[in-house]
Each structure stands twice: as structure tokens, then as C-alpha cells.
Design a protein around this nucleic acid. Sequence first.
DNA 1: GCCAACGTTGGC
DNA 2: GCCAACGTTGGC
Length: 164
Amino acid sequence: MSRSPQADTAARARQYWLMKSEPDEASIDTLAERGTLPWTGVRNYQARNFMRDAMRIGDGVLFYHSSCPQPGIAGLAEVSSQPYPDPTQFDPKSDYYDAASRQDEPRWMLVDVRFAGKSPLISLADLRAHEELADMVVLRRGNRLSITPVTPAEWRFITTRLMR
DNA sequence: GCCAACGTTGGC
DNA sequence: GCCAACGTTGGC
């Protein structure tokens, strides 16, 4: 099956994601200092599949602080690499070591994420207060996924209405 | 610290 | 392939 030259070169529309990080491990300030971070430690297949199969360089990221005194969106980032194997899976000293993963067939893939700006914290209560965001995946009851898709409308609302 | 919700494991 | 038990997530 051949594809047109346009299909090979045309960028797909930018997509958007929300990525949870525990600020004790990596906060928006950590990302601001370092510029980019490898998104290590994801050990959930659905979240891995988003990074491995769906993300593209330049996709927008809502950087979310979780498991902390003030959970919420703390800033913006963007996907800045192709997927590649998470090195921590091969490191026996890492909390994220996976003895069952093989070098020649890595189980866990990640992307790098680049800092794109800090925002005043947008709390869960703030997010839930807006009808426009009622269907956000991250707000769904029982949701535990550390990476969730964000619709263009949700992205627009958050970045243009809640972040100014 | 509690606990709801969900994913993974492993016996059968 | 079922499903109970167990572990983890993550807000409160």
C-alpha cells in the first residue's frame, strides 16, 4: 500500500495530553530547571501505549501534580522526543526496575517532555467547576491513569480561559 | 490513614 | 478463561 507524498510529509494535527507527576519526584519547577525530562516510571500498559503509539513530537501536555497537598494542573509542556525504552526498567537499583523486561524486547517505552510554561495551580475543584470540562478523562470517577487524552476544546478552554 | 476503584496475578 | 485475592493509585 503506497501513500501519497503529502501523507508522508504532512504533520498530523497536534494532539493534547494530561500527564500526572508526583511533585516530590518531579514538579513543574523541576521541569523548568532541567528543560526536558524523560517520562520514566510509567508501568501501566494503557499509559505506555499512549506514549509509544499515539504521541508525536510537539503534542501539548498539561503537567499535573498528583498525590500531593494541592493536586492540579501546574503548567504546560510538550512532547519532545520519539518513544524510546525507559532506561529505569533495566536498572536493578531503580524503583521502576522490571526484571521481566528484556533489552532486546523492552516492555516499557517513554517520551521526553519539554517545559513550556508554569501556570497558577488549577485545582481539581477548579476543573470540576466548569461545565466545558465535565467530560475530561482525568475527572472521571475512579480514574487512575497517569496519562490521559485531552480534547482540543478542553485544551483551548484550559489554556485560554483558566490560565489567564 | 481511609477507602473506592481499578489493574494484575495466579490457582483452578 | 474465570475470578478471588492482592497491590496500587490518588483524592480526601
